[in-house]
Design a protein around this nucleic acid. Structure first.
Ligand SMILES: [Zn+2]
Ligand SMILES: [Zn+2]
Ligand SMILES: [Zn+2]
Ligand SMILES: [Zn+2]
Lengths: 142, 142
DNA sequence: CTATAACTGAAAATTTTTTTCAATAAGGAG
DNA sequence: CTCCTTATTGAAAAAAATTTTCAGTTATAG
């Protein structure tokens, strides 16, 4: 069992949510996929394991998982509909995404600390979070 | 006349596009707004100046302006529908966005060069671009 | 096992975006 | 300036994406 599955049930339970077949299946699909997936794609894959699953439930589940930070949206010029499982269970990280095949790799390096501090001082903003996404072509797609 | 309006006509003409009332109005609306706007919001504001404008044209114009890099999408957890004018006409920059009111400020600092080079070496990706967005609360909204 | 409240699927509704197509208007040629 | 060509536009319709509703189902505490 992976880092994610060790923890996601706990995280749901902590917050009073139930562990259901739909949630388990959606999460398994995302976890098993090296590439980002749209709700529709998740639905198609998940139905292979859970026939009666409805697309609505996929949407609802994704919203929940996103709220609990178990799943994250991948933003691209082409649209921001697809999602990816959060693999490093703890700690700050960002995504490196392949423009061609959608392969997602997490990376922990984030040299933004001092830049953000300066930015905060200069602008008067109370900086709360940041989102970084790096786009390129993976070794296979070059 | 602002930096933007000095240049956008040229950029369109260079590429063989025409300067139309719709395009002018959409751009003026975005340029005049300190906050990010959705296509719908742009449409409502633009219609005050250009009565017969259609929402379809707003969509089409935004797609074009985005392609020409005169306008940029703002990504947030709540959705990625809104846009903002690109104010620094040249050079690499990112956005600082207020979570509450949507105020957008551009900033040129980007300390990612070396991080990205290392990332490229380590992962084998051919890195092509990156997107950074910093979220917080602006001075007014704190 | 039972009670109960969370969860689900199907259908419908809503929202967002794109396509189609006839009418209009920008901009170059004269 | 006027004419011509072709890009552009608006309205309506279609398509796509997402959310709501609601009655039936199921997870889980006790
Ligand atoms: Zn986005
Ligand atoms: Zn790839
Ligand atoms: Zn603000
Ligand atoms: Zn940068």
């Amino acid at each position: 069992m992976s880092i994610l599955t060790e923890n996601w049930e706990e995280r749901l339970k902590e917050q009073g949510y139930r562990i259901t077949k739909s949630r388990r299946t959606v999460l398994e699909v995302l976890e098993a996929s090296p590439i980002r997936l749209t709700p529709e794609e998740i639905y198609r894959r998940a139905r292979r394991r859970h026939r009666k699953l409805g697309l609505v439930t996929v949407y609802r589940t994704l919203a929940l998982l996103e709220k609990l930070n178990l799943v994250q949206r991948v933003h691209t010029e082409a649209g921001c509909r697809s999602l990816t499982a959060v693999r490093l269970d703890k700690g700050h990280h960002h995504h490196l995404v392949c423009r061609t095949c959608g392969y997602v790799e997490e990376f922990p390096d984030c040299a933004l600390g001092s830049v953000l501090r300066k930015l905060q001082a200069r602008t008067g903003f109370a900086i709360e979070s940041h989102h970084l996404e790096v786009v390129g072509r993976c070794p296979k797609c070059q």
